[in-house]
Design a protein around this nucleic acid. Structure first.
Lengths: 285, 285
DNA sequence: ATATTTTTAGAATTAAAATTCCATATTGAC
DNA sequence: GTCAATATGGAATTTTAATTCTAAAAATAT
């Protein structure tokens, strides 16, 4: 097992970029079958990460043992060891902002104002990226259509998320979508809920720990036959049973969660609903 | 194997979104161990895709067989079958632009929405960077000290910026800094202003075009001898005469200005004020 | 053209993971 | 508090995948 005269390596690459380099640069010295595998590995790295040796053999058109020889050529003990590099890369590339969000939460308390500002800026950016990555356009479209078609849109939120509710209600109203803020002022949430009808939409915003009033009001809204939309951070009944449910991941710093993703989603929903509503009114006349 | 009375499903979800919905909505009916697994599956889907049953068992703190029971609860024959759903999702999400391109091709509305989402995310990020770049730490420190020393902090805002005011007031109150939201409800801003005293701080948030009421109320606050803080987008009297004046630049999309920088600044001010206030109280006693 | 080396496919083997099953523990009803 | 029902962990088993090995096929050199 001493040094080969060929390009065979004895110290396998531990990270994906290095491995890709090695595959590309030693390509010319590979045998026929190994070239086929190299092509495929560079073109479909996620298949290398997720499929078995036998599956890859079928896909590429080589024997499973060729896959193992390929891995061993690059210094790995076998296919499994090489695959772990592809898997690590896939996992890392799929959750770049989630990782940052987690790191923010787990790093200790900010020492001073400057550091705190930096961390909040970073947290806000990570939240916005995560919003972009995880929120399907179709869901936004569907929600906006519900909002645009509603007789009245009731926005339901308490405590922390009340801020986002004011923003959503304000922007909806500004775009001439009839909006009503269920603020429960003076404990009158019950009475306010009485005006929710079956042609209305109730959109609830609730973050953990969710306010009991919001939960009860939302359940009541479902019972009235109104369409429902929920924006929450965790999967929690009854919100997950809404007609449309958005799950939001906000980064937090020192236990303080930002609201960047939530208010951005609120604004996008309002604008889209306003656009659809305006289109309907113009075709109607 | 006939229909169960419980929530057990006999037709397993083939796509990830459906599965996630099912996990979320049946969460409450799950047993302890299955809840743990459900949490983890929603939080770390890529681990479900890439790790073995035994590894997941270790990570979650349950027996490997519990993982299989979890999969079977959702109608799969076993863990392997469920894992293929997670793997498919991971592979799909590793090529994020494919999805987006598909949407762009199929629907004009979705195209607009996707593009708008991108632009709002970008605008939000730009606003946060600008906040970080242009806001001196000393100014934040000085403002936080004023807030911490105040008898009462009055938060003054109308219309668009009212959202940010609710957020600032909520977080100040949560951190035990006495905060009062001057919401001008029922046109009572005049009366609300009457409780502003010389030991108080009035913090106004106003963006162009600024509400007349906010301007008048702020002038009156200055006259009472209260300390003043202003957060505005343009240099506009009387706000530039405040003891501390923050100028915020929010990026806008199609004339809709985001609030990302403003609410982030509000949160930072609240936390910093809360910290200073707590330090004072502890040294006082 | 022949001998030698390298490459290859597929069978045999080994290793690992998934699944089943059962004894025990826990929970909930009465 | 007792009993029944359900949930749980872990050992035993089955299944599947990875790896090794060998004989045959190509490729190369002489």
């Amino acid at each position: 097992m001493q040094n080969e005269t060929k390009t065979k390596l004895d110290k396998p690459a531990r990270d994906f970029d290095t491995l890709r380099e090695q595959i590309a640069s030693s390509y010319d010295g590979l045998s026929n079958r190994l070239k086929l595998i190299a092509d495929y590995a560079l073109r479909e790295p996620s298949a290398l990460a997720l499929h078995t040796g036998a599956m890859l053999g079928d896909e590429i058109g080589v024997a499973p043992s060729a896959i193992i020889r390929f891995a061993q050529h690059f210094g790995y003990s076998g296919f499994s060891e090489m695959q772990s590099v592809f898997r690590a890369e896939l996992q890392a590339s799929s959750t770049p902002y989630q990782d940052r969000i987690k790191n923010l939460e787990h790093s200790g308390a900010a020492r001073d104002t400057a550091e705190m500002t930096d961390r909040f800026v970073e947290a806000g950016i990570a939240s916005l990226h995560e919003l972009q990555r995880t929120t399907p356009v179709e869901k936004i479209e569907a929600a906006a259509r519900l909002l645009a078609d509603a007789r009245i849109v009731h926005v339901l939120a308490q405590k922390r998320t009340f801020t986002a509710a004011t923003y959503l209600a304000y922007n909806l109203a500004r775009l001439e979508v009839p909006a009503n803020l269920l603020d429960g002022i003076g404990g009158t949430l019950e009475q306010q809920m009485a005006m929710v009808g079956p042609d209305d939409v109730v959109i609830a915003i609730s973050f953990h720990p969710c306010a009991e009033e919001t939960v009860r009001a939302f359940e009541r809204a479902c019972a009235t036959g109104a369409r429902t939309i929920a924006i929450t951070d965790l999967a929690h009944t009854p919100f997950t049973n809404a007609d449309i449910w958005f799950q939001i991941t906000e980064a937090s710093v020192d236990g303080f969660r930002s609201l960047n993703a939530t208010i951005s989603l609120a604004l996008i929903l309002a604008i889209r609903a306003g656009t659809l509503s305006a289109e309907q009114n113009s075709t109607k006349t």
